[in-house]
């Protein structure tokens, strides 16, 4: 195994563990925005598609590259925008008449 491959595998494994650790602390209330946020993060695939688009040298590869770039950029733009929209709803300023609901049980 090359040094390069070993490094990549190590990074892969450690990232999965970090992912488990970070995600398991997120409350169920925020699971939809979190999932959507994670969705945006896999939009990083756009980086790969940019690289292949610039390597393309014939019609077949132009087609594949175009599909890849288009799909990935839908992913990355849509993911971040919709997550932001959702989270705006969670951070709306509370109205002044909301103070009476602390817990509800006495």
């Amino acid at each position: 195994m090359s040094q390069e491959l070993y490094t990549n595998i190590a990074i892969f494994v450690l990232s999965i563990l970090v992912g488990f650790e970070v995600i398991s602390k997120i409350p169920a209330t925020l699971h939809t925005p979190m999932m959507s946020g994670a969705n945006a993060i896999h939009g990083v695939v756009v980086v790969g598609t940019i690289l292949i688009a610039l390597e393309a040298h014939s019609i077949l590869f132009y087609v594949i590259a175009f599909i890849a770039v288009f799909l990935a950029s839908v992913n990355v733009a849509g993911g971040y925008v919709v997550t932001d929209r959702m989270l705006t709803m969670f951070s709306k300023p509370k109205k002044s008449d909301d103070q009476s609901q602390d817990g509800g049980e006495k």
Partner: peptide, 27 residues
């Protein structure tokens, strides 16, 4: 996405893909 990162040897893809893989699995 992580596998695509291995293919083109790009660590940004490997890391981000693995994070999302873990997130999706937990959920």
């Amino acid at each position: 996405v992580s596998m695509a990162g291995f293919v083109i040897d790009n660590q940004a893809l490997i890391i981000a893909g693995a994070l999302v893989g873990a997130a999706g699995t937990i959920l």
